[in-house]
């Protein structure tokens, strides 16, 4: 039983990364209709940025947790203004290709300057060691990641459902033309929302740095799974992304425990099953427009 609970925790911790990353992808997809392929690259830059901050400027984990995602978020908003927005009126495929190109450029730049190897980064002193959770001891840092992800996801959910900004973004996500006809300047919101999605990717990256290998390719492996999470949750659905993220982490962990032979493909089996059952994803709405 204890063992099972511990594995549940493991699932939720790896689900935390899925949830945060999928949330950012969902928000961006919602307002732009664009699948941001570069999401994994920004996750990588979050982790790499933390290492750079420490190595070059002596900036530790806590300040990096604030600064690195912020810098990446601003960069994301800028990218939207100078590149993504120019292709917005064309087929979404163009922007998908653009973000794919951005991924390659960002990855290769990091490789060019720092090589393909991974960089050392460890958890801050106060988060090293384990914490007792009653039935078992659990690594402090992993527990911190779970709490941080839950706090961020809840805060985003509250902001989405309880504030005017959230209302405007929801409306602009759902029916941009109707929102515009009601006097809402939808375009004004795109860059900040894009930047916010990137902020989330960067934040996940910083959180990953102390517990995962910090290397230029760390995002490209993960992003495929996160795409599956977003599809399972329903493209553009904010709550769907978060719930599917945690659920998938959990399913993966328990799958590894009870059916290790399936571990490699489990995510995609779940995705296929969900799509057969509900083509728009668990929380997605069927397309109403013709």
């Amino acid at each position: 039983m204890t063992n099972f609970l511990e594995q549940v925790f493991n699932g939720l911790v790896s689900g935390s990364f899925y949830a945060l990353l999928a949330l950012g992808l969902a928000v961006i997809f919602g307002i732009l209709g664009v699948v941001n392929f570069a999401h994994g690259a920004f996750y990588m830059l979050g982790a790499f940025g933390s290492w750079l901050a420490l190595d070059k400027a002596g900036i530790g984990f806590w300040p990096a947790l604030l600064l690195v995602p912020l810098a990446l978020g601003l960069f994301g908003a800028l990218l939207e203004r100078i590149a993504v927005s120019r292709l917005a009126s064309l087929d979404p495929l163009y922007n998908f290709l653009l973000t794919f190109g951005v991924t390659l450029v960002l990855q290769d730049l990091v490789v060019r300057f720092y090589g393909v190897g991974s960089q050392p980064y460890s958890a801050p002193k106060e988060l090293q060691g384990t914490i007792s959770l009653g039935l078992f001891d659990y690594p402090k840092y992993q527990a911190f990641v779970l709490v941080a992800a839950l706090v961020v996801c809840s805060a985003v959910w509250l902001a989405f459902t309880r504030t005017r900004v959230g209302m405007v973004v929801r409306a602009a996500t759902e029916r941009p033309d109707v929102a515009r006809a009601l006097g809402v300047d939808v375009r004004r919101w795109i860059a900040p929302v894009f930047g916010f999605g990137i902020w989330l990717a960067g934040l996940s990256g910083v959180l990953a740095a102390p517990m995962r290998s910090v290397n230029p390719l760390m995002g490209s492996d993960l992003v495929i799974t996160v795409f599956a999470v977003v599809v399972i949750g329903g493209l553009g659905s904010v709550s769907g992304a978060v719930i599917a993220g945690f659920a998938l982490g959990l399913i993966e962990a328990l799958g590894e425990l009870y059916a290790p032979f399936l571990a490699q493909v489990l995510v995609f089996v779940v995705m296929a099953a969900v799509l057969l059952w509900r083509p728009a994803g668990l929380f997605g709405r069927q397309e109403v427009r013709a």
Partner: peptide, 12 residues
């Protein structure tokens, strides 16, 4: 503008 499908927001 009142749209032909009414344009009511489902998420609001």
């Amino acid at each position: 503008w009142v749209q032909d499908d009414r344009g009511v927001f489902a998420t609001l």
